[in-house]
Computed example of a mutant assay.
Amino acid sequence: MSSSSSDGVEERLDEIIDDIIDETYINIVESQPKKQRKRAYIERDRELGHNRLWNDYFSEDATFPTHLFRRHFRMNKDLFLRIAYRLSENVPFFQQRRDATGRFGLSPLHKCTAAIRLLAYGNAADAVDEYLRIGESTAIFCLEHFNEGIIRLFGDEYLRRPTAEDFERLLHIGEIRGFSGMVGSIDCMHCRWKNCPTAWKGQYTRGSTKPSIVLEAVASQDLWIWHVFFGLPCTLNDINVLDRSPVFDDIIQGRAPRVEYMVNRHIYNLAYYLTNGIYPNWSTFIQSISLPQGLKTDLFTKYQESTRKDVERAFGVLQSRFAIVKNPGSFMGPG
């Protein structure tokens, strides 16, 4: 009995000593300063990338003519140069500076081209590395600062609510097309979210589909998207999105311009939108007739459905012009 008890005591002591040694070793290792891995530096010869870009698009005898510039950049050269100039004048990130060795950094044209290429083609961030000689992280920074700069510098002019003059123009266009009081067509589009966090995939996924985000927009015949509401999960349909949308805030708060028009000898003072059948039967929505009966209703349905396609046509042009909208949203983070 005494022999077995002593063996048990020794085993217990050995376990305690092993635990003390392991804990001491872990404390020593954690207390030592961690060696930071050096960042791998690749000499990309950014001057070569800038010279190639300049000779291809911006020199007097550029390789690619103006119509190919618009095709590759999804905008004409004058607009691109205007954007690049404003960004270089007002956003420090796009200002070309020298580093500690006196070497010039990336030029404004260089950075704006990287951002435009990612927007236009929707490729991975390192897809512009071989041509522009810009790394993946730098290309993402270019895209982020480009979007922030555009919103800050051009938002007041282009990302604004329609004014009274704008509504008058929209109403005039609607009247010419046979829809007096119509200010546009409204619909929703789903954008796939590739990098959706795992904790959020349930609310951003419907059925067996991939996670996606809903984009609500109102567009006119000239492809002017004058209302955008973006960011809600795919589990919501058009009606649920409408309940959260600020599209009617101006009407509710009394800021909407007054409208007056006559249809069938009745005077109305509330503008309306053309929608598909999923939207509710509100006075601000004109839906197509699902089962038209007679020549009159059949003709109305035909014109209503063709005119309502304005917003879907705007979605199509937006996706074809800027492929980052059509491709999975790999750049969109949880913020």
Rank of each mutant, 00 (worst) to 15 (best):
Y279P: 01
Y261W: 01
T284C: 15
R244Q: 11
M262R: 12
R192A: 13
I251H: 12
F300N: 04
I289A: 06
M262K: 13
A271Q: 10
E175I: 06
E305T: 15
P233V: 06
G184R: 01
H172E: 09
H172K: 11
V259G: 02
N264F: 12
D238N: 09
F229G: 03
Q221L: 13
Y279L: 04
S245N: 02
I186W: 08
T235W: 03
T275G: 05
F285C: 08
M189Y: 06
W282A: 07
T209A: 14
A219G: 00
G277A: 15
W226P: 05
P233L: 08
I186M: 15
A217S: 14
V259Q: 09
Y204W: 04
Y272Q: 01
Q203W: 05
G174N: 03
D222H: 08
D250L: 08
M182P: 01
D238E: 06
R177W: 07
V228T: 14
I176W: 06
T297Q: 15
L170T: 00
T198R: 14
F285T: 05
L295P: 05
Y273A: 09
L236Y: 12
T307F: 08
K210H: 13
Y261N: 02
N276R: 09
V247C: 09
C188E: 04
D187W: 02
A256K: 10
W282H: 09
V183G: 02
E168T: 10
G178W: 12
T301M: 04
S245L: 00
H190F: 11
I286R: 12
Y272S: 01
K296D: 13
Q221V: 05
L299M: 09
Q287W: 08
E216S: 13
L170S: 03
K296C: 07
E260V: 12
D249E: 13
S180R: 15
T301G: 06
F167M: 07
P197A: 05
L291C: 15
V218L: 07
R244M: 10
V241H: 00
L236G: 05
C188H: 02
S220G: 10
N240Y: 09
S180H: 13
R308T: 03
I213T: 09
I286N: 12
T307M: 01
S208G: 04
N237W: 02
L291V: 14
I286V: 15
I176G: 11
Q253H: 14
I252D: 15
S245G: 04
Y204H: 06
G231M: 10
I186C: 10
G174V: 00
G202V: 07
G207W: 12
L215N: 00
C196A: 05
D249Y: 06
S180T: 11
R265D: 15
F300W: 07
V218Q: 07
S180E: 14
N195L: 04
I286G: 03
G294L: 02
G202M: 05
R258D: 13
R192F: 08
C188L: 09
Y261G: 01
I176Q: 15
Y273N: 02
K296P: 00
